[in-house]
């Protein structure tokens, strides 16, 4: 990686020598995530006025959020400007709520995020339709967003693969079982966010490869074909 190539006459490679002692993660002791360099670049937290630059900025923020959530296996992210990863206490910079929203919207365009609807709105059954519910403006400041480091489609295929591997096609599984049962322990499915799981199953239903039904007062069942 950072092999100091023996530059012939003049040492044209400046500071490649210091070992990996001061990585970002050690600078933010509360977080194991290896924050990228831009996270320590103050302008990264100010919306850039140049459109091209702004696009580059959004792209970087997007991959930061995806990587961050993947690292911590977060399915939903609090859009709190005073918390990681939107706030960098080391350089005392934070991303403004409006700019956070822009990043989430940028991810949404790629199908990589979705606002979490505030409580009270239809959740379980509403979640089965995977179409982005436009607007999302209701999820006020400090709301939450699903960050899809795996899209519901990708989760759906993963679950379908597991069902196939374990020879459970045709049998009825409950959502609870998938999330917390012994069967999925040790797989990526175990401990999934309930809403994301239901969305994921919804995509399989959409492909006609599964069916979801109410299997109790408050629990869903699924059957893969």
């Amino acid at each position: 990686m950072s092999t100091t190539s023996p530059a012939p006459s003049d040492s044209s490679t400046p500071n490649n020598s210091n070992p990996k002692t001061t990585t970002a993660s050690t600078l933010l002791p509360n977080d194991t995530f290896p924050f990228p360099r831009e996270f320590f670049f103050p302008p990264f937290f100010t919306r850039q006025t140049n459109l091209t630059t702004h696009h580059a900025q959004l792209t970087k923020w997007s991959s930061l959020l995806l990587a961050y959530c993947r690292h911590h296996r977060l399915f939903r992210l609090s859009l709190n400007p005073d918390a990681l990863p939107f706030h960098n206490p080391r350089i005392n910079r934070r991303l403004a709520p409006g700019d956070i929203r822009r990043v989430v919207d940028f991810l949404r365009r790629d199908g990589r995020a979705e606002y979490v609807l505030p409580l009270g709105q239809t959740k379980k059954d509403g979640a089965m339709t995977t179409t982005a519910r436009g607007g999302g403006g209701e999820a006020g400041e400090g709301g939450e967003a699903f960050i899809y480091w795996r899209t519901p489609e990708e989760w759906g295929s993963l679950i379908e693969g597991w069902v196939e591997e374990t020879g459970q096609r045709g049998s009825v599984l409950t959502v609870y079982e998938l999330r917390e049962g012994e069967g999925t322990r040790g797989t990526e499915i175990w401990g999934m966010d309930g809403d994301v799981l239901v969305k994921a199953l919804g995509t399989v239903v959409k492909r006609g490869k599964a069916q979801i039904f109410q299997s109790g007062e408050d629990s869903l069942g699924v059957k893969f074909f």
Binding site: S2, N15, N16, N18, K20, T23, A24, F33, P34, F35, P36, R37, E38, F40, F41, P42, P43, F44, S63, L64, L66, A67, Y68, R70
Partner: peptide, 20 residues
């Protein structure tokens, strides 16, 4: 207002590719 050279974003020995 501070105007930064984007080169500073890339310097140092932090990993650039956070997403794996």
């Amino acid at each position: 207002w501070e105007y930064w050279s984007p080169g500073f974003m890339l310097e140092g020995d932090l990993p650039l590719d956070g997403f794996d």
